[in-house]
Design a protein around this nucleic acid. Sequence first.
RNA 1: UGGGGUGUAGCCAAGUGGUAAGGCAGCGGCCUUUGGAGCCGCCACUCCCAGGUUCGAAUCCUGGCACCCCAGCCA
Length: 561
Amino acid sequence: MTTTEKSDFIREIIDEDLRSNKNEGRVHTRFPPEPNGYLHIGHAKSICLNYGIARDYNGKFNLRFDDTNPEKEEQEYVDSIIEDVKWLGGDFEDRLFYASDYFEQMFQYAVDLIKKGKAYVCDFNGDEIRASRGTLTEAGKDSPYRNRSKEENLDLFSRMRKGEFPNGANTLRAKIDMASPNINLRDPIMYRIVHEGHHRQGEAWCIYPTYDWAHGLEDSIERITHSICTLEFENHRPLYDWFLENLEIYHPQQIEFARLNITYTILSKRKLLQLVREKHVDGWDDPRMPTIAGIKRRGYTADSIKVFCDKIGISKKDSTIDVAMLEWSIREDLNKNAQRAMAVLNPIKVVLTNYPENKTEELSAVNNPENESAGTRMVPFGRELYIDRDDFREVPPPKYYRLSPGTEVRLRYAYIIKCEKVIKDADGNLIELHCTYDPATKSGTETANRKVKSTIHWVNAAKAVDAEVRLYDRLFLKENPDEVEEGKDFLSNLNPNSLQVLKNCKLEPMLGQASPGDRFQFERTGYFCADVKDSKSGALVFNRIVTLKDTWAKIEQKGKK
RNA sequence: UGGGGUGUAGCCAAGUGGUAAGGCAGCGGCCUUUGGAGCCGCCACUCCCAGGUUCGAAUCCUGGCACCCCAGCCA
């Protein structure tokens, strides 16, 4: 751990509040998701911020479902959100709350406001409300129902609750100012009638509070000190404050920060839902999804996500983080922590013509060069091997260091071999390579240190374990997936090659023991994770988390330009 | 020609009147039995623009400009 203290404008506000003893020294934050979808990496930023603040200031952190709209919310989402928050280390202890548990209290607060003459039942329908709201540049008009008596309002409101009116028949509105330049203050709706079962309340209610009305109450009831949300709610802060002031109840401070955007990815719940519903991906936990579930299944560690969130910072500037930053965070973690292994993704057979027919050797391989305590393992060698197709070129391009006819490479942890002959079938397809090995170059021996241009990975053909490997790439082709031609939508930017399935991969024997969720570095290739859903012993499936940095690919790209 | 925000490198981001941190990306080089990792170096004479105040301005003032958010009985 570093000793440098984290700071950002929100922590500065908290420091100042602490200095002035604003909340008796308390710091209490919350993460308030609506259970209408799975959490994504943008939510991770918020969780890390809110939980991180509570942790760093010895405060408390609540998980609270903002479940005020039964039309969109489901138990499945509640379950997934709880799991994901925990996975990210957001420790809410016993403080798991639901806004719907406060419905009765909210109703009473609404009655208070009516009694104070600051709320009224409006019989306008949706169109009428919209028409009377005015525009950005013109004031709205007062509703004809605005000056009903308190008694009539109380009566109507209780009848709304009883279910005497159909959906949309009327609403409870705050009486603020129809001429306010801030449209949110033009008599905003507090309750609407929705005859629909709620995932926790069942049929108990048919009026539901709106976000603006409910959110500050939730924060107040939980004695939240700092209510942190994203920038689009900045315009709503005057309303947040108005309700709490007029109710004369505990008043948390709302603070807004910029939400996360990442290149080549989409972080809109609506669009992610669409990807799932229309089956452009295999579900919320598809490893290409930026959901926590997807990222987790892809093989990202919770630590890497936390580091990522720390690195990107907190500010009020609209920003788009380069996806390379996310990829860096997982490489950084796994470079230090992942067990190394040799895996041949696209095999070509290599026969060592001068290696004895039935001989095998066990060679020592390092498990993690970044961590000596990870030790070594034995890897079987033999006369017939597989190497990767990428590691052989019949006609090597400039600066190609790997195997080609007549050249030598080192087989990692084994011998230097030389390509003597290329065997092809009648159609000219490459079948196998005949090579010779140099017995004097066995790794670890005194005569081994002859220099060759490169070292490649391999597996023993007879002992290899078969596996399916799924190569994932970015889901979208464009840096900004929402940038589209007239008449098209973000789906037109989907990357048709975001998933490539390799069925004939050959792995070193040790990988046969991999359990679902285990992560490895396949040397020279990338980081991989045994799929938690589909990988089974005897039928292994690995997901590529991220490639290793590929200097050769870069050189080759430049050569083509 | 309503209101609320935001402008510091390709992308993030420190900076709070004393002469532009750091990370990612990129580019060189060293090293290497992973073209991985690591190491070293380079990468803003200038902070959206224009004026002004000051010995001194990214920081203060004035005036512009650009971008984002708001007209759901969504959150």
